[in-house]
């Protein structure tokens, strides 16, 4: 038995002048949720397509459950459940027909694996006679997940499953993934949402085809080396532009109603306040904050730029 569910070694893929994947290597343990976080165009989809045998890598190799994704592509296609970036459903078929169709082409029936999808499917079952095209984003996502699961795959590959889905459905979706994990299914999932990263067992940050770091979410946050402050002021734009001129600041990014500013070591709260007051920004709300995944990601991205 192989030690890892997914083993990727030195994978590279180029499309013309664009390096989609640049010497990517990592391992995914059995029945864990592995998150791939990165902006659009960072190579997530290409990586998933190679894993699901839809693309051939230029160099390097990858195995899933011990099967080579190039040589044993037929077996790979039996043991993977794949949910592409767009919900690949037949919009002119009803919910039930979609599910039945995917069950049939994978040589099984809804009945046979109903237990596995029950928790998810039960939520959309009331709409089973509705055409998939008329479902809401959240329901489409649940249906797509049901379809990807119907043949009881060993590895579930989910390409941005929560894009375009409302916040409540996103939360529910991650609950479902946690349950699936307990069924001994390895899940590799990509997302552009940093907040979802903390729900994974391991997270790989990817940018421009390169893996920046692979850690548990906690370790990624611990690795953040700069003091971090959360600052709020009514005129956010002015605050941000001012902070970016601050020589002691490493970075400043906006998070909703506040700005996270990372400082060079030793610089403290007082220096920031006095600098802002000098610039005419008085009474700013300022407090230290624990870095989230996004801070870490921005930080790592800055490092690679330098």
């Amino acid at each position: 038995m192989p030690d890892f569910s997914i083993d990727i070694q030195n994978l590279s893929k180029t499309f013309g002048p664009v390096k989609a994947l640049d010497d990517v290597s990592f391992q995914v343990e059995k029945s864990e949720i592995f998150g791939l976080i990165g902006p659009d165009g960072s190579g997530k989809t290409s990586l998933f397509r190679i894993l699901t045998s839809l693309l051939l890598p230029d160099s390097g190799m990858a195995t899933m459950e011990g099967y080579d994704v190039v040589k044993s592509y037929k077996i790979i296609r039996q043991i993977t459940g794949y949910m592409p970036g767009r919900f690949s459903l037949y919009y002119d078929l009803t919910v039930e027909e979609n599910l039945a169709f995917f069950a049939t082409i994978f040589g099984t029936t809804i009945k046979e694996n109903y237990d596995l999808i029950k928790d998810i499917y039960i939520q959309i079952e009331p709409f089973k006679n509705r055409r998939a095209g008329n479902l809401s984003g959240g329901m489409k996502q649940k249906l797509a997940l049901s379809c990807a699961l119907i043949h009881k795959p060993k590895v579930l590959v989910l390409d941005e499953p929560t894009t375009g889905v409302d916040a409540v459905s996103r939360k529910e979706f991650w609950e479902m993934l946690k349950k699936l994990k307990q069924q001994d299914i390895t899940i590799i999932v990509s997302t552009p949402y940093m907040d979802e990263a903390s729900l994974c067992d391991h997270v790989a940050l990817i940018q421009k085809g390169k893996i920046l770091s692979i850690e548990t979410p906690a370790n990624i946050r611990n690795a953040f080396s700069h003091p971090l402050y959360k600052i709020a002021y009514p005129d956010m734009y002015r605050l941000l532009t001012t902070l970016r001129t601050f020589s002691e600041a490493v970075s400043a990014h906006r998070f909703g109603d506040s700005i996270h500013v990372a400082l060079k070591t030793r610089t403290g709260e007082k220096e920031v306040r006095s600098f802002l007051e000098e610039q005419g920004l008085k009474d700013v709300a300022l407090e230290p904050v624990r870095p989230n995944i996004e801070d870490c990601f921005m930080d790592l991205m800055n490092d690679t730029h330098d």
């Binding site: 397509r49 699901t52 045998s53 839809l54 037929k74 296609r77 039996q78 993977t80 794949y82 592409p84 970036g85 767009r86 919900f87 690949s88 459903l89 037949y90 919009y91 995917f102 082409i105 994978f106 040589g107 379809c147």
Partner: peptide, 13 residues
């Protein structure tokens, strides 16, 4: 165009 071809290709069909 709909992306369903991806799934069909991944399927054992």
């Amino acid at each position: 165009e709909m992306g369903t071809m991806e799934i069909l290709l991944v399927s054992p069909l």
